[in-house]
């Protein structure tokens, strides 16, 4: 059914659309007022996000467990065990313990490389309504955080600071499709570019066509000028597949990130890198294979039956 089509409505529509286009133009030209408005909104929202994170932590753990249901048998077993202890106080305790463990791992990682880090809690997981993969952390410019600083998880790179507000910061995760990082392969020192793909795996593109990469190779961050956005030596992931298609200028492959982006609770922002390059010092140790016991069976021929 058509609307009556009053001229007033059309005029209003045109005014609103022109206003929106005006806002887009102002923002693209870098007018500070709009940045200020966004920062102000984020400042107002951050206490609510922190409160929401605190109240919903037990529920978030439950939802996260349900989300990963069926992926591996071990996780199902763990979920069954967890279901038996679904009491709020225990979940809160467990949540705190998990965050402490993450924090210990992060500090180990940062300490080995000599990075100066500021720890942060994830207070909001951005929805992918805007096709981006981001999280909000509970520290901002008041804690010395600046745009384009490296963000670490307990096992390696988590992302980079995209926007900074007074008491919060927006972190672009390494899985974001627009995320790109220069990497080198531990040991061989080959270099390449890793791009996010929206999932825990990323796309690797080597830069040199004379070198080769193989499955299991460990990737480390190559580092940027003045250590921003990336400090050197941070573990990124390992190669899970290599594409040797004919016609490619250089090899490409698929990489699995070390960081589990589904369970980010505590992160660390690198505010200053060490004066020396940590080199391959942060390469995670390879898992030691469990020895398989061998059984030797001796067969002795029985004496031939007597007639």
């Amino acid at each position: 059914m058509r609307y009556g089509g009053e001229g007033r409505t059309r005029l209003l529509l045109i005014i609103l659309i022109v206003t929106a286009l005006f806002l887009i133009t102002l923002d693209l030209r870098g007018v500070a007022v709009l940045d200020g408005a966004r920062q102000g909104t984020q400042t107002i929202l951050s206490p609510f996000q922190k409160a929401g994170n605190f109240i919903l932590s037990p529920v978030k753990n439950f939802v996260s467990d349900v989300t990963h249901l069926g992926r591996t048998r071990n996780q199902i077993e763990k979920l069954r065990a967890d279901n038996a202890k679904l009491k709020a106080d225990l979940l809160n305790r467990k949540n705190a313990d998990a965050q402490l463990k993450q924090l210990e791992s992060i500090l180990d990682l940062a300490g080995t490389a000599g990075y100066k880090v500021v720890n942060a809690k994830v207070i909001s997981q951005g929805s992918s309504q805007s096709f981006s993969q981001t999280v909000t952390i509970d520290i901002g410019s008041n804690a010395g955080i600046k745009k384009n600083m490296t963000v670490l998880s307990q096992t390696g790179i988590a992302g980079v600071v995209k926007d900074v507000f007074p008491s919060t910061a927006l972190v672009m995760l390494a899985t974001d499709p627009s995320f790109k990082i220069g990497i080198r392969i531990a040991g061989t020192q080959q270099i390449g570019i890793l791009s996010g793909r929206g999932s825990r795996s990323g796309s690797l593109q080597l830069l040199d066509n004379l070198t080769t990469v193989k499955v299991g190779d460990v990737l480390l961050a190559r580092g940027s000028v003045a250590n921003r956005p990336f400090v050197p030596g941070v573990p990124v992931g390992y190669v899970t597949a290599v594409d040797n298609s004919a016609g490619e200028i250089a090899q490409s492959g698929t990489v699995r990130y070390y960081t589990n982006f589904g369970g980010l609770g505590v992160l660390a922002v690198v505010v200053a890198a060490s004066s020396t390059n940590p080199g391959d010092a942060l390469v995670p140790p390879k898992p030691v294979p469990t020895p398989i016991p061998t059984v030797t069976v001796y067969v002795t021929p029985s004496p031939s039956p007597t007639k």
Partner: peptide
């Protein structure tokens, strides 16, 4: 939606 931290694009995009 444009004022949200994770809006993704320039201010005005979601408005339009």
């Amino acid at each position: 939606m444009d004022m949200s931290g994770g809006a993704g694009g320039p201010v005005g995009q979601w408005t339009l």
